[in-house]
Each structure stands twice: as structure tokens, then as C-alpha cells.
Amino acid sequence: MLIKLENANLKYMEGTPFEAVAIEDVSFELRKGEAIGIIGPTGSGKSSLGQVLTALIQPDAGILTIDDKKVGAELQTGNVYKHVSFLFQKPEAQLFEANVFDEVAFGPRNLGLTEAKVEDSVKEALAIVDLDFKAYSRRSPFNLSGGEMRRVGIASVLALKSKAFVMDEPTAGLDAQSRRRIISFLKSLKGKDTSLVLISHDIDEVLEVCDSLIVLNEGRIVLKTAVKDVLKHASFMKGLGLNLPENYALASKLIDCGWAIKSLTKDSLMQALEKRMSG
């Protein structure tokens, strides 16, 4: 098991009038090569769970195991980043280096890689976020547009090439082309045996990338389901304000009618429709 969290509880500002339950009795497992989506209404504890899974927040109760090593005992919290990387919301807010190259190279250098390997990681990470290495590597990250800064922030985490990524809203605020690039990268992780936890408000994105999903509400896991079975829970999710995209119901009905559609996603539906129309 790559990540295993057992019965975790977390409260903010405990013992004050501001006390808030972030997560309550949450257990979670992520296997090698698996992609799990976490969705839920605003304030449901998605980001807190992501940070607990990467040991950036210590829960009040619960046991976290990464790569079969108990965090805090067999694996120091400061070394968790070597196994699992967390991508924060708005990663552009963490930029600090003088140029894009050094910014993206910060993580790989902390891993102790040679400069040649660091450069390879930087090139690869910038290519994923659609930034040209030659054009951008010597530019100051603070002179870029908001969208470009976001992509540099994402690249700086991708460059760690971890066994698993926990990503909090990685595509929020990106233009359509960059978003597509990030999503195809996330989908490509499966082939590389890299695991993924995708925290997102965009259900369509989660359903496209992930194998299964978890729905959080008020800090508790209220639903665990495989993506292929998600339609069975459509009304329950609607009750939480999580409406499934209409193309899901349409694709499902067409599959029932014998159409050859690979999955319920918008892309698969479009491909099937185009094929029918051209054929």
C-alpha cells in the first residue's frame, strides 16, 4: 500500500469558539498506479485531507503509513516529500527564485540529484505544463502572467517525479489548452505506475482522470465508489450539490443502446458521436 490512513481526526482551533472539524474518522488507501478523486462541497475537508495524506498536517488522531512505513516513527515527516508530493492550491504563491529554472529545480536539488538530472527533470516538467524551456528558463517567475506563474508552480512540484502526487485543484484558473495538457499528463501517470489523489471541484475532470472517487461532506467520507458506477449515486450526489455532468447520463443511455463508448467522459462521447456522424 502506498498511502494508508486509518481513523484520522483533525480539528482546527480546538477549544476555542473558532473550533472547526476538518476531518472526522477518515480512513483512506491508495495503491500503486491508482488514481482516486476527492470531491465535496466547499469546506468539506478536501484540502485538509490532502495535507494529512502528505504529512503536512499532523492529525489529532489516526495513523498514516506511506510505503508501509509509519509516518513519524519509521518515516520522518520531513522526508515524506521523497515519496509523495503535494501540490497546493494556487502554487504560484510559493514562487521565490530568481528564474524559472531555479524555481522548478528547487525540489529536485533538495532530493540531491546531479545537475544533469535536475536539468532533465526541469525540462520534462516545463514541457508538461506547456512552457518552452529555452524561452522561459531564464525569465523571472514574477514577470510572468498569472496563468504562466501557475504553470511554473505546478512544474515545480511535478519535477519531484514522486511515486504519488496529491493535487489540490491543479487546473483551477488555467486556460483550456493548459488544462487539457495537465489532464492528459495526469491520465498518463497510470501508465508510469505513479499514483494520484486528485482533489477537485470539477467532477468531470475527476471522472475523466480517476478510477474511483471519494465524496467528503462535513469532514466525513459519505461515499466511495468506482467511477464506472458513479451514475448509481447521481441523486445522492445531487443532494450534496454535486451534480454529475449531463453527458454522463447521455453516454450511459447510449451504451445501454449498444453504442461503443469507452467511458462516460465528454471526450469519449464526442469521439463516438463523431464516428457515428462520419460513418
Partner: peptide
């Protein structure tokens, strides 16, 4: 937390 996630000490 964000910088620690990138290995900052």
C-alpha cells in the same frame, strides 16, 4: 507547508 512539500529545510 508548500515549501516543505518541495523538500525545503
Amino acid at each position: 507547508k508548500a515549501q516543505k512539500a518541495r523538500g525545503a529545510t
